[in-house]
């Protein structure tokens, strides 16, 4: 009986890395969004800080959306 431990380990490692990356990026986006709201409440949503936070959040969420689209393409392409 031959079991491909390397393939198993690879699958596990890739899963772990992707999960952590997605959740970290999403959490950062979330944090940025909350910074932006803090700026808005202080009355300067369009300050450099507020805008930077909004852009950062947008980049983070776009990255997550990209991973989701890749995931869907994996499902469909099989």
């Amino acid at each position: 009986m031959q079991i491909k431990w390397a393939a198993l380990g690879q699958t596990a490692g890739v899963s772990l890395a992707i999960t952590l990356a997605v959740v970290v990026v999403f959490a950062l986006g979330n944090l940025a969004l909350s910074r932006r709201e803090a700026a808005a409440e202080a009355g300067n949503a369009n300050s450099a800080k507020g805008t930077a936070a909004l852009v950062a959040a947008g980049v983070c969420f776009a990255a997550c959306a990209g991973v989701v689209l890749y995931g869907i393409s994996l499902i469909a392409g099989k």
């Binding site: 999960t19 970290v24 959490a27 979330n30 944090l31 969004l33 709201e37």
Partner: peptide
């Protein structure tokens, strides 16, 4: 993976506005 992700999610957003996050 979920354990680690949970830890990181809480760690990263700990200073954010809880309601927003």
């Amino acid at each position: 993976a979920s354990w680690g992700a949970t830890k990181l999610a809480y760690l990263i957003t700990r200073n954010g506005n809880q309601k927003t996050t």
